[in-house]
Design a protein around this nucleic acid. Structure first.
Length: 558
RNA sequence: UGGGGUGUCGUCAAGCGGUAAGACACAAGCCUUUGGAGCUUGCAUUCCCAGGUUCGAAUCCUGGCACCCCAGCCA
């Protein structure tokens, strides 16, 4: 990824790296890595990490690897590695040929483990999982050493080999590091390095029945890859002493680990477990549901890679726990699309308008800029006729104060076209308004009055004869609470799913050209927001649009 | 009550002993053929609290307080 940002970023991680470069701490160039576990789809929190790791590598002339931490075959799947690769690439980053897997290092890790056994720093333990927990002690009390802690090197080597050969059932024995059962840091109380798991691995198949724990695999994987800066989240801060211990005992390359706070966003959840739950319970249509905070969901919603990168830049990186307001993300995509998206008129909740004094068969066309923010995007002609649709919300019989759209007394401008005035409200038997009869003023052609009179409101419209029917999906926050994980009000996060997070409008009237709009392209529907031509469901005869984000609305706020 | 972290505007976040950046949000006004966009202005006399050092402290020291993480053969 090219770094075309002229301002130098000064977050604490980059500061540390600058110091390391200046002090010559690492002789070769900067190496980072993005190390996901392929057990779910990537979300916007991962995007923060991806932008950080790949961004730093690019800024400092280094490289960033993509490495899958695939040490638990019971949870990992090829589907996830495929989605992760797609998402990282879509975000605009390139790991070139450096696609690695912790499982690439299983043989090396096995040899490293033998080395620790040789040094008397690791042992095979026969305790059950429950017993290990009991022996571990508590936060305030030291643990007790395993009775198997002092087996001989030869016995350990033999037993470890037999574990590998598959002689024992799942969980029968473990390999543990021999460190300090009295350490105040629980991670140092003889942590498990290997467990027996007779499970097929998505890459190594049946080759192994013992699998390294993350804590045993991660640091060594970074070391093997020559990573200089292992950037990870806060919860690994007190694992660092353990990683340091392994590396030191092994005498291998020592990366510098730096921890930062993971991302939390209002009105959504970020844990993979909860996201999976939403998918399983069919509360959303899948990992890529447009309301999901996953990269694939945001993509499906219509966010651009650029908008996600801009977001990552704006929120910064630090160590304090934080919750970023979703409005920051929304503003990023708005800011970008304001400059990029062609404008078009779309009536979402149509109300028929007949211009009683307009000639029956007449049609005329008005010229308009495709994007007033970027005139190079050209102009187009919008057809106009006697029978139109306007937004139901743009007419009010008993308007609240400050309302300056169409009312029995307010004259309004049909954007680009004419001023109109209400003549008659037509209702059906039940009293429901079915259409409006209005008059237009021929002396306001183009939307400008010859006598210079002004009008407060300008509304959008679509000529009935020149429209295309469309389906429009209005998306909103998935949850109705800022922090859905906060259940102090008695509602758990399933209970706070926003029932209006997706509203489907099936009788929308759009400018006819929208029937030909390319799937995946983005438009601004005037006065509504930014919309994506649905990449899956849209068809020329029946276009489908997804709302990416609404426009700011100073009136609705009142 | 063990260990590891963190506390600066409503929300993020700069600040690194010389007198509180920026962004989002919010508010007011201007402008407007999108109540959009744009523009202008306002928005922490104060940095968790209390002491101390210093000519000078958000920054250094001491002591509190609050919040987050850790007792998976998950990552």
């Amino acid at each position: 990824m090219e770094n075309n940002d002229s301002t130098v970023k000064t977050d604490f991680i980059r500061e540390i790296i600058r110091e390391d470069i200046n002090s010559g701490r690492f002789s070769s160039g900067i190496m980072t890595r993005f190390p996901p576990e392929p057990n779910g789809y990537l979300h916007i929190g991962h995007a923060k990490s991806i932008c950080l790791n790949f961004g730093i590598a690019a800024e400092f002339g280094g490289k960033c690897n993509l490495r899958f931490d695939d040490t638990n075959p019971t949870k990992e799947e090829q589907e996830y590695v495929d989605s992760i690769k797609e998402d990282v690439r879509w975000l605009g980053f390139d790991w070139e040929e450096r696609e690695y897997y912790a499982s690439d290092y299983f043989d090396q890790l096995y040899q490293y483990a033998r080395k620790l056994i040789d040094k008397g720093k690791a042992f095979v333990c026969d305790l059950t999982a429950d017993q290990i927990r009991d022996f571990r002690g508590t936060l305030t009390q030291p643990g007790k050493g395993s009775p198997y802690r002092n087996r001989s090197v030869d016995e350990n080597l033999a037993l470890f080999e037999r574990m590998r050969q598959g002689e024992y059932p799942d969980g029968f024995r473990t390999l543990r590091a021999k460190i300090d059962m009295a350490s105040p840091n629980l991670n140092l109380r003889d942590p498990v390095m290997y467990r027996i798991l007779h499970a097929s691995h998505h890459r190594t198949g049946e080759k192994w029945c013992i699998y390294p724990m993350y804590d045993w695999a991660h640091g060594q994987s970074d070391s093997i890859e020559g990573i200089t800066h292992s950037i990870c989240t806060l919860e690994f801060e007190d694992h660092r002493p353990l990683y340091d211990w392994f590396i030191t005992e092994l005498g291998i390359h020592h990366p510098r680990q730096i921890e930062f706070a993971r991302l939390a966003l209002t009105y959504t959840v970020m844990s993979k477990r909860k996201l999976l739950e939403l998918v399983k319970r069919k509360i959303v249509s899948g990992w890529d549901d447009p309301r999901m905070p996953t990269i694939s969901g945001l993509r499906r919603r219509g966010f651009t890679p650029e908008s996600i990168r801009l977001f990552a830049e704006r929120i910064g990186v630090a160590k304090r726990d934080s919750m970023v307001e979703i409005s920051v993300l929304e503003d990023c995509i708005r800011e970008l699309l304001n400059k990029q998206a062609p404008r078009v008129m779309a009536v979402l909740r149509p109300l028929k308008v007949v211009l009683v004094n307009y000639p029956d068969e007449k049609t005329e066309e008005f010229e308009t800029d495709n994007n007033p923010e970027d005139l190079s995007m050209g102009k187009r002609l919008v057809p106009f006729s006697k029978l139109l649709y306007i937004e139901r919300e743009d007419f009010s019989e008993n308007p609240p104060k400050g309302y300056f759209r169409l009312t029995p007394t307010n004259e309004v401008r049909l954007k680009h076209a004419y001023f109109i005035r209400l003549k008659e409200v037509v209702r059906d038997g039940s009293g429901e308004i079915v259409e409006l009869h209005c008059t237009y003023d021929p002396d306001t052609h183009g939307g400008e009055a010859k006598d210079g009179r002004k009008v407060k409101g300008t509304i959008h419209w679509v000529s009935a004869a020149h429209s295309v029917d469309a389906e429009v999906r209005l998306y909103d926050h998935l949850f109705s609470k800022e922090d859905p994980e906060d259940d102090s009000d008695g509602r758990d996060f399933f209970g706070s799913v926003n029932p209006d997070s997706m509203i489907t409008l099936k009788e929308c009237k759009l400018e006819k050209s929208m029937g030909q709009a390319a799937k995946g392209s983005r438009f601004q529907f005037l006065r509504h927001g930014y919309f994506l031509v649905d990449p899956v469901d849209s068809k020329p005869e029946r276009p489908v649009f997804d709302r990416i984000v609404s426009l700011k609305d100073a009136w609705k706020k009142k």
